[in-house]
């Protein structure tokens, strides 16, 4: 990416992956800004490989039932529900 600027097609591709619709003028503006920002990120090339000592412990609890939000509360903020379920858009 270092030598070629970010082109609008790449911005559109990434926006598609991220499920964010963009207007044409947003695509153009982001293309210019992303070029600057990604060029700055390039300086990470100078960072040496570093040994990472991750201090990890198992935090999983036993798989036992316990109280959680009831269904009504969980559905309270949903724009659409049906028969006690979330209702989403058509898959295709």
């Amino acid at each position: 990416m270092s030598d070629d600027a970010v082109n609008p097609e790449e911005v559109r591709h990434v926006a598609g992956l991220a499920r964010v619709d963009l207007d044409d003028d947003e695509v153009d503006r982001f293309a210019g800004q992303f070029a600057d920002i990604l060029e700055y990120f390039e300086t990470l090339d100078e960072v040496p490989e570093v040994d990472r000592e991750a201090e990890l412990t198992n935090v999983m609890r036993p798989d036992e039932e316990r109280d959680s939000l009831d269904r009504e509360a969980a559905l309270e903020n949903a724009p659409e529900t049906e028969d006690g379920y979330f209702k989403g858009p058509n898959v295709s």
Binding site: A15, G16, A18, R19, V20, D21, L22, G88, P89, N90, V91, S92
Partner: peptide, 12 residues
Amino acid sequence: GNWNETFAQTRK
């Protein structure tokens, strides 16, 4: 539109 198109519009 479909699932993906609706999400993309919501997020836009």
